[in-house]
Design a protein around this nucleic acid. Structure first.
Length: 493
RNA sequence: GGCGCUAUCGUCUAGAGGCCUAGGACAUCUGGUUCUCAUCCAGAAAAUCACGGGUUCAAAUCCCGUUGGCGCUACCA
């Protein structure tokens, strides 16, 4: 079965984690299905909220994640926004005549009507309803206007909207792909607006018209849209169209589990995750496993195997809290699976941005190997690797750090001096972890020392931090000359 | 307030009437490896399956109710 799924963002801001999850589910749904498309349609019917550049940024974020649309509004190879496909235009502001045509059709058929009520009247009406503890709804004042009067007032240029004439006493039953059968009463529904007075359609109209005209088969959206499902279904009915399959996905909650994931919970903009050095595959895996699970005890999957297993029936119904700690764990796992060369490539920009004298080459490769298993995301590179490029500051803090527990500065100095003598005796080609290990351990064993009292000061003198790769590894990476220079600086504090 | 959705360890989840004295993962704690951190390995703690009723020989799983949570309630999407 060929599937036409669509992602329909408004260009009002950056791509959000929650929206990305929806696109990922769309992608998963479509990916293994032959002749299927992931269509991107721009819903810019509220011109006042359009943010210049937001659309490009959203498309870039999708490209970064590897879930770019295959039809509709896309980025070409030069990064320009273009429209691809034969169902266009795919931008709603370019489809205004289409919506007008269908809205007029509905008015002519008596399934929608012009409403001339002013904003002021609407406001006072709502205020009264609320004062009487009634649900705030349009009182259908204009629904009883005759066709002649309605047409005459419109022709005279009076400002109006078009409202959907919701039928009375009708049960609206619909089967949602994740929630099963849902039931609504038409009497609970408002005669909501289809066409605004500025000539733009509302989401409700544009969405239904476009999904139908673009032959969309599956609509995946957040569960916050569930209340508008009966309006949509009734509109499809009014047009005499068959609705697509709908799947209302559980919302993603912030860490407190009290509200939708939002800015105050940390970064929610997808491009922030790129900048912080998260891997697309890691975020993809993380997001795919929120609100859905493959039902096995495996944790990590390739996108293809995820797509093979994916089905809407297994989508969770309840909202889920986004676990940032787990994201770090997942990302760390993906980093550990990478080739050293890729890790080096990824950390370099962060080191350079921190003004460290880092450049591509063998040395960077060695550094990458040393820190790979310590990274959760790449923007930690400076924090865990600066001492490979810069000597620690010779100050009181460093001196304090050099001294292992239960010992003093004199003893530490003595150990450092003895170790330096051992190290001096090694030729540069012996300056590899195994040989360094062998010689220093021999030195420790012969003198009946403890590993800690000898090795800790070396590691600390070399790095200046409490946590780092081990002494032998640091010695071999820094090399004989630099290592001894750092040890000398430390011992003479 | 009204309407809708929802409910298994702190979190993400497995679970489609007996395999469940509820499994896995993250986080937490302990131990091992060890010069620190991280990795890796082993283990612990953690859910009276929201609560109350049914149905059934048998219920986390089916039904009803209650409660909590979330969402929506615009000429926004």
């Amino acid at each position: 079965m060929s599937i036409r799924a669509r992602y329909a963002p408004s260009p009002t801001g950056d791509l959000h984690l929650g929206s990305l999850r929806t696109v990922i589910f769309d992608w998963l749904l479509v990916h293994e299905e032959p002749d299927s498309s992931l269509i991107l349609r721009v819903e810019d019917t509220d011109q006042s909220r359009v943010v210049p550049g937001a659309l490009e940024r959203q498309l870039q974020a999708l490209a970064w994640m590897g879930v770019s649309p295959t039809e509709g509004v896309c980025l070409d190879e030069q990064g320009n926004v273009v429209e691809i496909g034969s169902y266009g235009p795919y931008t709603q502001s370019k489809r205004l005549e289409i919506y007008k045509k269908y809205a007029d059709e509905l008015v002519a058929a008596g399934k929608a009507y012009r409403c001339f009520c002013t904003t002021e009247r609407l406001e006072t009406m709502r205020a009264e309803q609320q004062a009487n503890h009634l649900p705030p709804r349009y009182d259908r004042f204009c629904r009883s206007l005759t066709a002649e009067e309605s047409a005459a007032r419109a022709a005279a240029g009076e400002s109006c909207v078009i409202r959907h004439a919701i039928p009375d006493n009708q049960e609206v039953k619909f089967t949602d792909q994740v929630r099963g059968e849902v039931l609504f009463q038409s009497n609970e529904l408002d005669d909501y607006v289809l066409m605004k007075s500025d000539g733009y359609p509302t989401y409700q109209l544009a969405n239904v018209v476009d999904d139908h005209l673009m032959e969309i088969t599956h609509v995946l959206r957040g569960e916050e849209w569930l209340p508008s499902l009966p309006k949509n279904v009734l509109l499809y009915e009014a047009f005499g169209w068959t609705p697509p399959k709908f799947a209302h996905l559980p919302v993603i909650l912030g860490p407190d589990g009290k509200h939708k994931l939002s800015k105050r919970d940390g970064d929610v903009s997808v491009i922030d995750y790129d900048q912080k050095g998260y891997l697309p595959d890691a975020l993809f895996n993380m997001l795919a496993m929120i609100g859905w699970s493959p039902g096995t005890e495996e944790e990590f999957f390739t996108r293809d195997s995820l797509a093979k297993r994916f089905s809407l029936e297994r989508v969770q119904k309840a909202a889920a809290v986004f676990n940032f700690q787990r994201l770090d764990y997942v990302n760390g796992w993906y980093i550990r699976q990478m080739q050293i060369g890729e890790v080096a490539e990824r950390i370099l920009p962060y080191l350079v941005a921190a003004n460290l004298p880092a450049q591509a080459g063998n040395y960077l490769l060695t550094v990458a190997a040393a820190i790979q298993e310590r990274l959760k995301h790449f923007d930690e590179a400076e924090e865990v690797a600066w001492f490979f490029f810069k000597r620690p500051e010779p100050n009181e803090t460093l001196r304090g750090l050099l001294i292992p527990k239960k010992t003093d500065w004199e003893a530490t100095q003595k150990h450092l001096r003895e170790s330096m003598q051992v190290l001096q005796g090694l030729a540069e080609d012996q300056w590899v972890p195994d040989i360094l290990d062998e010689n220093l351990r021999l030195h420790i064993a012969m003198n009946n020392y403890k590993n800690l009292e000898v090795l800790w000061p070396i590691r600390a003198a070399l790095t200046g931090v409490p946590a780092s790769p081990g002494a032998f590894e640091m010695l071999s990476i820094l090399g004989k000359e630099e290592s001894l220079a750092r040890l000398e600086r430390a011992v003479s504090l």
